[in-house]
Design a protein around this nucleic acid. Structure first.
Length: 525
RNA sequence: CGGGGCGUAGCGCAGUCUGGUAGCGCACUUGACUGGGGGUCAAGUGGUCGCAGGUUCAAAUCCUGCCGUCCCGACCA
């Protein structure tokens, strides 16, 4: 994508806000290389781990490089060469730069492109206390940045993805078109990405009331089939999914009405990452039954049971025999279950109880515009970055990293600030503050004189003004002004000038008002 | 990568089923009128119909292969 003048002006405004707030938070700006040597990425083992997402290249000597998708390796390399003493800590560096990621599926224009601008920052600390302070400062900094941009946003607990590390928070701009589902507690501060969100623990498993019985269920392939044939609610059934494990297959058991959370599943002990569902042939060979008739009772492979599924009594599940299911099944009596097999692997659903009695969970859609990570010593250890502490011991610094999608923010701002006629820029981001529309500029000497004088006055007052002096009809100018979305619009025309009036309108207001020419610039705050 | 759709003028599309003159809207050019919410009329410019092969007297249209692109699913700022 090429940024045209108006879009570029907005992009620069966003960069300026980010820069100001980062500096205010004690970070220092640097600029790192786009082309990065493979050796650095081999040290952190991410040369393999990043897979196809990394854009790779070779130079004339056939040495391997990549176009930087992120800069943990480069900053850690910089750190280990430049910083030796705990006295130099903490440090916090950031840059605003083009990143390259060979996305599986670029979409929504600049919202997810293979090439984008990101603000990325990295901090180094001697101890956890210092790190915690900076992490909290960055959290505040991100909140200030998004607030200055007048965005409606939420910070949520998040999964760390392939950046790694312990804990992380995402900053989401709320929008229906967002690609992420974010989860909130109705009566408390709990908020998380759906990938990460948990519900409160279920109540203890009730005692069995029914005996185990095997029933014929010819043709039943899905939970819906099963519920229809046995007249059971889906919440009283189990579904069994087969995934590829490090050694053969493994079974993941969920309540029939729940969905698998693939992010959580990929982290289970012994499960292959990224998560891969088993093929039908492998399932048949291993289980002696086809998908649709699978279950945990007499299952020949390791089983993981979602804790909601583990809290059921008298449930129905596949019998591992084509065309048969069990009813009245119960854990322990019919299928032994150890504590470590009971896990959280489902997506929460709206209405689930939130953790810590914070009411029911609710969902919203969000655009992820920022993500801050607690990296710990993952990179400093892998890449031998260390400082000497007060006692002369070599210590691996604790790291944090802080990303913000600059180009994505432009798109996110528009998502939250538009109507049917076009963009409505928040004033701090607008490419111009005033849109001066001259009607019949090329025909009317009065209009031309008054407009030129007003334009001159704007410039003298330091008001950032865009003059539409094109030889277009008024309708076309009004339509373009709405589309472009500059906050203040002043219309100069013969009709008003007869009374020394011009028309003033805010882009966000529904209607315009006539204002004396001499006073109109006072309206612009 | 898997599943689906689409490639015809700068853009958006019709025409393809049923082979026979390549069309419509917007945009663009010129002129006249018009002039406070995307104007009207008139005259124009612009296309090896994605590429390659095949069938046919004849291919945008039928057949084969390739390429591109968009949408839907598994990832991330």
């Amino acid at each position: 994508y090429t940024w045209l003048p108006l879009g570029l002006a907005v992009l620069r405004n966003i960069e300026t806000i980010i820069r100001e707030e980062m500096v205010k938070s004690g970070a220092q700006e640097v600029l790192m290389p786009v082309v990065q040597p493979a050796e650095l990425w081999q040290e952190s083992a991410r040369w393999q781990k990043m897979g196809d997402e990394m854009l790779r290249m070779q130079d004339r000597h056939e040495r391997d490089f990549c176009l930087g998708p992120t800069h943990e390796e480069v900053i850690t390399d910089l750190f280990r060469r430049e910083v030796q003493s705990y006295r130099q800590l903490p440090v916090n560096y950031f840059q605003i730069q083009t990143k390259f990621r060979d996305e599986r599926r670029p979409r929504f224009g600049v919202m997810r492109a293979r090439e984008f601008t990101m603000k990325d920052g990295y901090s180094f600390h001697l101890d956890q206390t210092s790190f915690d302070a900076t992490y909290a400062e960055m959290y505040d900094c991100y909140s200030r940045i998004l607030t200055r941009m007048q965005l409606d946003f939420r910070a949520v607990d998040a999964d760390t993805g392939n950046i790694g590390g312990a804990n992380s928070h995402e900053f989401h701009v709320l929008a229906e078109s967002g690609e992420d589902t974010i989860v909130f507690a109705a009566n408390g501060p709990y908020a998380a990405n759906l990938e990460k969100a948990e519900a409160a623990l279920p109540a203890a498993t009730p005692a069995p009331q029914q005996g185990l019985e095997k029933v014929a269920t010819p043709g039943v392939k899905t939970i819906a089939d099963l519920c229809a044939q046995l007249e059971l609610p889906a919440a009283q059934t189990l579904k069994t999914l087969m995934v590829v494990a490090d050694d053969g297959l493994a079974a993941i058991v969920l309540r029939g009405d729940h969905d698998l959370n693939e992010t959580k599943a990929a982290k289970l002990q012994g499960i292959r990452t990224p998560l891969q569902f088993a093929g039908e042939n492998d399932i048949r060979t291993t289980m002696q039954a086809a998908p649709g008739s699978l279950g945990p009772i007499t299952c020949p492979v390791p089983i993981f049971v979602d804790r909601e599924a583990a809290a059921l009594a008298d449930f129905s599940c596949g019998a591992n025999e084509d065309g048969y299911h069990y009813i009245g099944a119960n854990w322990q009596r019919d299928c032994e279950l150890e504590d470590q097999q009971v896990v959280d692997v489902r997506n929460v659903v709206e209405g689930d109880p939130a953790p810590d009695n914070q009411g029911a969970l609710k969902f919203l859609r969000g655009i992820e515009v920022g993500h801050i990570f607690q990296l710990g010593t993952t990179y400093s250890t892998a890449m031998n970055a260390s400082v000497l502490d007060q006692d002369g011991n070599s210590v691996a610094p604790i790291m944090g990293c802080y990303g913000m999608g600059v180009t994505r923010l432009v798109a996110a701002v528009i998502e939250q600030n538009h109507d049917d006629n076009g963009i409505i820029w928040p004033a701090p981001l607008a490419p111009y503050q005033v849109h001066l529309l001259a009607l019949n500029y090329h025909k009317s000497e009065n209009v031309k004189t008054a407009t030129d004088a007003l334009y001159q006055e704007c410039q003298e007052q330091g008001i950032n003004v865009l003059l539409d002096d094109r030889d277009e009809r008024p309708g076309a100018k009004f339509a373009d002004a709405d589309l472009i979305g500059i906050p203040h619009r002043i219309v100069v025309g013969e009709r008003g000038l007869k009374n020394s009036m011009v028309e003033y309108k805010r882009r966000s207001d529904p209607s315009a008002q006539d204002v004396p020419l001499a006073e109109v610039l006072d309206r612009i705050g």
